[in-house]
């Protein structure tokens, strides 16, 4: 990042004044956050770059019309654009399949998975590894805190399909978390043996 972080108000002032570097400053300050948002929905890295490119173009085109409403409003506005572009891309390319996988691990374990100590990067990778439909519903429900009703309206599916996809996403994610723990416990065990 170039220099210290600037406030949203300052960034908007610079952009509206036509400062040549202002757009790059905005990009530099928020590209990592917006990449994280987008990559939760778009699994392929090439597609991710395309969607982010379109999102930033849209942000730069319409930032002049944005009404600032306090610190955080610009970040939220940009993330909504990225989310919108991601969903449109998924729908247009028919990547949103809500077919249910025939998987043994479709039931949630009795004990909820323990996420304590698991790095955020690992959780992010696990979410990206979910099938498209599961991942989209999981993101919208758990992270965007949308209801099944809203998700059904957004994605053009039934509420029951949304609930079913979420249930399966949670089961798959729980299995991945458990597997991650087992793998890391095994690795830690081997390391401890070697150094003992």
């Amino acid at each position: 990042m170039d220099g210290p972080k600037r406030t949203e108000k300052e960034l908007l002032r610079l952009i509206n004044e036509g400062d040549e570097q202002a757009r790059y400053l905005l990009y530099a300050q928020y590209s990592r956050y917006l990449s994280a948002v987008c990559s939760r929905y778009i699994a392929d890295d090439e597609d991710l770059k395309d969607v982010l490119q379109e999102s930033f173009l849209k942000i730069f085109r319409s930032i002049g019309d944005f009404g600032y409403r306090g610190e955080g409003s610009l970040k939220a506005w940009m993330s909504r654009i990225v989310l919108n572009e991601s969903l449109v891309w998924l729908k247009q390319r028919r990547h949103l399949s809500f077919a249910e996988l025939d998987d043994e691990a479709m039931n949630l374990p009795d004990a909820p998975p323990d996420t304590e100590g698991i790095p955020a990067e690992a959780i992010h990778r696990m979410i990206r590894a979910l099938p498209d439909g599961y991942r989209t519903v999981f993101n919208l429900y758990v992270i965007e805190e949308k209801s099944h009703r809203e998700i059904a309206a957004l994605l053009g599916i039934k509420e029951s399909t949304s609930a079913s996809q979420l249930h399966r996403a949670k089961a798959l994610l729980a299995a991945m978390i458990t597997q991650f723990r087992n793998d890391n416990d095994t690795t830690d065990g081997r390391l401890a043996e070697r150094h003992s």
Binding site: R32, Y33, L34, S35, A36, S39, L52, H124, I143
Partner: peptide, 8 residues
């Protein structure tokens, strides 16, 4: 995940 950041 709400504030997570990833490389562009």
């Amino acid at each position: 995940m709400e504030h997570f950041e990833a490389d562009a």
